[in-house]
Design a protein around this nucleic acid. Structure first.
Lengths: 217, 217
DNA sequence: GAACGAGTCAACACCGTGTCGAGTTACGCG
DNA sequence: CGCGTAACTCGACACGGTGTTGACTCGTTC
């Protein structure tokens, strides 16, 4: 039995912890996964597809990743890093007008996922079947909600926005809207917005919810 | 080979079209599905579980339904019928105040799905893997969007709401928010609202988006 | 009492996952 | 040089799920 880091070590969901050198294989698997995800959902991609695509056999695949989902998770780690960077930039440098600030935030959110739409769709798909994927999503979502809630509080504190719903509740509802609308736009099933309208429409709802007074919030 | 209506007839996704009498079996399967869905996701329920739960063998299951998904679809048909009835009532009898009208609509939407939360969660889960489930969801969603868009237009026509985003786009975004927020509340993973707050928070966003003016919508 | 159709299931074919164990190769070290 | 060891590879297997086949049992109907 060879040392199979992905299976043996329980830390870090099966990625290879030590010694590179078979790195090309690992990258080939990741590249294959990304390529195939652009054509069909993860559920329609078998481990064998990934292995063959990377020029190895199925058992060899398991030397590099502990499962199909582990590949997805590795791919998602990159996207999460990008999303966090984008978020830090947007919330780091405040904008001229409040409207512009919110627009930049929403546009950045949208752009990050649009740049990896196949992965985003796979992410949402895998969420229902894999607890780790779910947790990863939750953590990204939570950070967004927190940042937005803080921004709403700040606007209220400086008198630019009226009091109303608890900032966190509002942030949860609006961020949920963003997520669902963007996902529906990508998959295109059911009533969905045109890609060119997404940011404008979402922004409209955000602005009126944050700055419009609601009786009896 | 017996006449297996679910498999032989391509109409109507495998439900039994003719002659009752083995009806108890069919109902037993449906009841078992509903019971098991309350404990675990559809993906963790096998055809064998459903068959055993109904006191029959696996091949016999296929006499009644063409697949696991067909069972879910049959169950969902009921919920859809309920949802449509609720929607007709809400949009049929206009309320005293506009606020009350929207609140009733959102509460009805929420209540319909809350009454079948296990099924609702399974519905969302199966959406990503089954085209028919997806289509069923889309049709329900489309009807809601249409009704809401019409109601928004009506409010604007009578001067109660200012012009702004296209009514349909607004309705899509807000209905998407409802859907996602309600689902997250049911599953409870990630940041989500308390059950008791859902309707109030959603209503707040709806009211400010429909009645609050947005510059440059 | 034969014919028929509804209902039933053991046995099978198939596919996807994950594991085991026996290799092969490459490289450092005595 | 030759030997050990760790990286790496894969054929063959065990398992569990799906969906189908074909033979069987009934009850009804003429």
């Amino acid at each position: 039995m060879p040392a199979a880091p992905g299976n043996a070590l329980s830390t870090g969901r099966g990625r290879r912890p030590v010694r590179p050198s078979g790195d090309d294989r690992e990258l080939a698997i990741l590249a294959t996964a990304e390529r195939l995800l652009a054509e069909r959902p993860l559920s329609a991609i078998s481990v064998d597809d990934l292995a063959r695509g990377a020029g190895i056999s199925r058992p060899t695949f398991y030397f590099y990743f502990s499962s199909k989902d582990a590949v997805l998770l590795t791919l998602l780690d990159r996207v999460v890093a990008e999303a966090d960077t984008a978020m830090a930039q947007v919330f780091g440098a405040p904008a001229a007008t409040a409207r512009e600030g919110w627009e930049r935030a929403i546009a950045a959110y949208y752009e990050t996922f649009r740049a990896h739409r196949a992965l985003t769709v796979a992410w949402a798909e895998a969420r229902s079947s894999n607890a780790e994927v779910r947790a990863l999503w939750s953590s990204v979502f939570e950070r967004w909600v927190q940042q937005c809630a803080d921004a709403i509080e700040a606007e209220r504190a400086r008198g630019a926005a009226p009091p109303g719903l608890p900032a966190r509740d509002l942030a949860i509802a609006l961020t949920s809207m963003n997520e669902r609308v963007i996902y529906a736009t990508f998959t295109g099933d059911g009533p969905s917005l045109a890609e060119s309208d997404v940011v404008r429409v979402l922004l409209g709802v955000w602005l009126s919810s944050v700055y419009g007074a609601v009786e009896g919030g």
